[in-house]
Computed example of a mutant assay.
Amino acid sequence: MSRAEARGGEEEERCRYKGVRRRRWGKWVSEIRVPGTRERLWLGSYATPEAAAVAHDTAVYFLRGGFLGDGGASALNFPERAAAAYGAGSVAPLSPRSVQSVASDAGMAADAQLVAARESQLVPGEISVDDMEILM
């Protein structure tokens, strides 16, 4: 029996971003495993899946010390954003708690921007069903 069946047939919505999943009540959450350990690092819950993906990417970047060569960029959701935001050089890997803080801050900032952008597009009476699909 799968987990979805165990919960009464309820399925979690699939997310196209790495390290991101959706809670039953609609929030998007992100977590990552600390390399070389079994420890999971909680990165936060967000209103948008993109913000949770930004938090995940930030954690990947700083846990790996900025090294994204040899396929490391494939672990990212937005590799071009990471290169633009943090540069292509290597940095000293941060401690897991520092990574958690930096990633959470990046995700919250992205969430605030995305929510504000979506709200500014939602003018009452001027939105169609097609527009709603684009925003979601």
Rank of each mutant, 00 (worst) to 15 (best):
S30N: 09
E31R: 15
E31M: 12
R33I: 05
P35E: 13
P35N: 12
P35I: 07
T37R: 05
R38S: 13
R38W: 10
E39D: 13
E39W: 07
E39F: 06
R40F: 04
R40S: 11
L41Q: 07
L41E: 04
L43Q: 07
L43N: 01
G44H: 03
S45W: 05
A47V: 07
T48L: 08
T48P: 02
P49T: 10
A53Y: 00
H56K: 09
D57Q: 03
T58I: 04
A59D: 00
A59M: 03
V60N: 01
V60R: 08
Y61N: 00
F62A: 00
F62R: 05
L63I: 06
R64T: 11
G66N: 08
G66V: 01
G69Q: 09
D70W: 14
G72M: 07
A75F: 11
A75L: 14
A75K: 12
L76A: 09
L76Y: 01
N77W: 00
N77S: 08
F78T: 05
E80I: 04
E80F: 01
R81C: 03
R81V: 07
A82G: 08
A82N: 01
G87K: 13
A88M: 12
S90H: 13
S90F: 14
V91N: 06
V91A: 09
P93V: 09
P93K: 00
L94E: 06
L94V: 10
S95F: 02
S95T: 15
R97M: 14
R97F: 09
R97D: 15
S98M: 14
S98L: 15
S98P: 02
V99Q: 03
V99Y: 02
Q100D: 03
S101Q: 15
V102C: 11
A103V: 11
S104K: 14
D105C: 13
D105F: 10
A106G: 08
G107S: 08
M108P: 00
M108W: 13
M108T: 15
A110F: 08
D111Y: 03
D111E: 15
Q113C: 13
L114I: 15
L114W: 04
V115F: 08
A116W: 08
A116L: 11
A117W: 11
R118T: 14
R118K: 15
R118W: 06
E119N: 14
S120V: 09
Q121D: 13
Q121Y: 11
